[in-house]
């Protein structure tokens, strides 16, 4: 996919068009998510110490680190699923504990990694579930909500999957549907846990292109990835989770070096530049 295609100006998220009359008050606003002096982990077992960072809308941050380094723990804490052991998370200057679950979900959406769905819901049903945070207590989605769900599916070019059973879709299609569900939440931040894992090469490229488009539509994106290349493709900020802390952070060109990759993954890598974009080539020895 060509670089200029990624920035088509007509592409706007949160959903445009008729949705405007129902605009949420946070729309078009800039917002900041801050994590201050936090200790993250499970009861009695700290996984990450001294976590400090800030995410803004309109930026992409890639989180890299080896398996089990604590990326998912970090995400669960940010989503409010896992309580902090110490420190605080501030969204829009307000502590996460003072946000109601529903209001929080209107600002931050989650694209999880593995999923099992025990019942045969259609792809459209799944996307529509994203509207839950916008519904009043006992209400179910109305015409408006269906419209928004349809628009989000259209934007990700998955409208043709509308009436298919979710569990019968391929991994790539499921991933796109879940991204559509997250967009239906009309969030300002998107937390994506390895969105490209389990996808074939083409779908990986497609999902990264989408991430770039969403960033241009001023969403803040926090994305875990196993491939440092993704950080280069998104021209993203990078956070390295290593040895129980956030070891390094900064722009991808500065943080991702051959030495750093050697330290994290324990393998030799050669970083080369192709047409202005860097890429990582593993050095397969002997």
């Amino acid at each position: 996919m060509k670089r200029n295609e990624l920035k088509s100006p007509d592409f706007q998220i949160p959903c445009h068009g008729p949705a405007k009359s129902h605009k949420r008050k946070y729309m078009d606003e800039r917002m900041i998510l801050e994590i201050k002096n936090a200790v993250l982990g499970y009861r009695g077992k700290a996984v990450l110490q001294n976590v400090n960072f800030t995410i803004e809308t309109g930026r992409t941050i890639c989180v890299i680190g080896k398996n089990g380094a604590g990326k998912t723990t970090l995400f669960k804490s940010i989503l409010g699923i896992l309580p902090l052991l110490r420190g605080e998370i501030l969204l829009d200057g307000r502590s996460i504990e003072r946000w109601r679950q529903r209001d929080y979900a209107r600002v931050i959406a989650y694209v999880p990694q593995a999923r099992t769905l025990p019942f045969p819901f259609t792809a459209f049903d799944v996307v529509l579930f994203g509207r839950t945070a916008h519904l009043s207590h006992f209400a179910s989605p109305g015409k408006r909500d269906r419209q928004i769900a349809d628009e989000c599916m259209e934007k990700l070019q998955v409208s043709h999957l509308r009436n298919r059973i979710f569990t019968q879709l391929s991994g790539g299609e499921q991933q796109m549907i879940i991204v559509a569900r997250a967009l239906t939440q009309q969030p300002l931040f998107l937390v994506m846990d390895e969105p490209a894992s389990n996808l074939d090469f083409g779908n990986q490229v497609r999902i990264i292109s989408q991430v770039n488009r969403l960033k241009d539509d001023s969403l803040g994106i926090l994305m875990a990835t196993h491939s440092p290349d993704h950080a280069f493709m998104c021209n993203a900020g990078v956070m390295v989770v290593h040895n129980g802390k956030i070891w390094k952070s900064g722009g991808c060109n500065r943080v991702i070096t051959e030495d750093v990759l050697k330290e994290i993954y324990g393998v030799d890598v050669c970083i080369c530049s192709m047409k202005g974009i860097k890429t990582c080539m593993p050095v397969i020895g002997n």
């Binding site: 989503l79 699923i81 209107r106 819901f121 994203g130 839950t132 179910s140």
Partner: peptide
Amino acid sequence: WLNAWKLNILSFGDEEAKALGVN
């Protein structure tokens, strides 16, 4: 019956349901 819609969301499991805004 009033919670039927939220019951749908719980099909995704606790964590995802929370992230979708369900208590």
